[in-house]
Design a protein around this nucleic acid. Sequence first.
RNA 1: GCGCCCGUAGCUCAGUUGGAUAGAGUGCAGGCCUCCGAAGCCUGAGGUCACAGGUUCGAUUCCUGUCGGGCGCGCCA
Length: 584
Amino acid sequence: MKAHLTHLFEQALEQLKKDGLFSADTDVLPQINHTRDARFGDFACNLAMQLAKPAKQNPRVLAEKIIAALPASEHVDKVEIAGPGFINIFVHKASRFAVINQILEQKADFGRSQIGQGQSVQVEFISANPTGPLHVGHGRGAAYGAALASLLRSAGFQVSCEYYVNDAGRQMDILATSVWLRYLDFCGESFAFPSNGYQGDYVQDIAATLHRENAGLYHHAATAVFADVPADAPDGGDKELHIDGLIKNAQQLLGDKGYRAVFDLALNTVLADIKRDTQAFGVNFDQWFSERSLTESGIVEKSVNTLKEKGFTYEQNGALWFRSTEFGDEKDRVLVRDDGRTTYFASDVAYHLNKLERGFDKLINIWGADHHGYVPRVRAAMTALGAEADKLTVLLVQFASLWRGKEKLQMSTRSGEFVTLRELRKEVGKDAARFFYVLRKSEQHMDFDLELAKSRSNDNPVYYIQYAHARVSSVFRQLQARNLVWLHDPAALESLNNEYEQALLTRLSKYGNVVETAAKAYEPHQIAYYLRELANEFHTFYNAHQFIVEDEDVRNARLSLIEAVQQVLRNGLAILGVSAPDEM
RNA sequence: GCGCCCGUAGCUCAGUUGGAUAGAGUGCAGGCCUCCGAAGCCUGAGGUCACAGGUUCGAUUCCUGUCGGGCGCGCCA
């Protein structure tokens, strides 16, 4: 409908240009918008106001000329000039009902759009280090990424979801060493656990498994383990040097094979847990991409060499640097450390190159806001390597600060002080958690109060929307109990006249547009707000009128309407990853 | 110090490439079940859109500055 109206105004505009009202190169395009108040009709066009200046005429006078030039249309009932020069369009009654037929025919496909034109998009999100279970801080990225992916699918993109597994690097070494030390505990060794080690219970669990399956295989005396290790922080030493010393000793005492066995057990256990967790959260990945595989296949080395050959690197203090400042970054970055190991950044350069080689038209990375300084250097490297950096979009998700009532909680995987995503899910449920996370726009800071989410979960807006869905199902159960049947009769829709029915028709007709604007802006929260409004209008209608009435035409028409409402609620909730129950 | 994000009702937040009288939830005050589910509906009070300039027919929206909050500025990941 919107496209149809836009076309009408384009024709009117062409006509006025021919009439010489203003020059032919005026590059104003007609904009048709849904009105927010029924008094202003169904759609409004502000063309007259936009043209007022180039045409040097009063917008209201101009509006009359535009209307005069407007071709006739079977869908348009009347047009009016209002306010400073808005042209309000009232759609013909029969055209307003058409949306119900569309919804009932297209069902789950209603609202799908083709703006994506089948382009392939990769969405990479969460990608938390596999050094511990996912916590509530990761939940926001998880819910946002998953909702964005299905939103883009609805908009006609081919979407692939990926989790980048940081299974190489120092953090993983710290985890492996932490597990091994707990294992030595089980072997009867006694020592102070490093302050910088991973302290969570899950580390103990992995160590217990290691001990159960390999009783004494990795046992070494504490004196050997702590030999030549610098003092820990509480004893006046440095916690980083302390843990690095322990890692080094672990690698030497266990040997390559033994160390790798401990390392892999820790990695695989944590990763398996993360996979179970995301799945239970309704978040599914097409690909789990290993950072280690990049190093092992030599792709990282290749990327670094390419940068070197192209002359974008230099050596300083024994390290190899990338001249990212030449590409807009604020300082140059290290690719290879003075000890010969490549940096995380080097892996990431290779990773993004690899993504493009896999043929995606568009790459979307969802990162925590703390990584924003990282964006320019990745783009810099892609540009330097001749890759199309503009295919990459980085969406930053602001932190959710976690509160328990008035107390702000710290979220540190290292200290073991965190609330896991699993705990949250068990407390408030998957649906409420998914909805709550995605209700805020991603770049907005967010306070997540556990007390509120847990103790008053019934007040969560998700139930309000699900309740509307369940109520429709309930009406149809009631219909059956009274031995009546619903027949969708397009002709009967004529009887939908009252303000409640008209409001719902208007709302339903906006759905496709909401999906498109939400997808273009990467803002799934727009769907959530739309659904709340739709549910609100449905509840209001429900309280004001009976659906199962004597008059057969009215009954069938109202049932067709609420069936359509339920379908749209279901489609929208599906995008957000929230279930649509038939009873609650 | 520099960079990014944010500042809208008591609280938590929407506000569609700038548009008509700035909206929800929650909290507060009151009303609605003999009637398809009251996890619902209706009414009311509640605002200097942080502040000051600028751009224009028109600014919560765009630009500049000030104030306030968050984050980043590693040979960590």
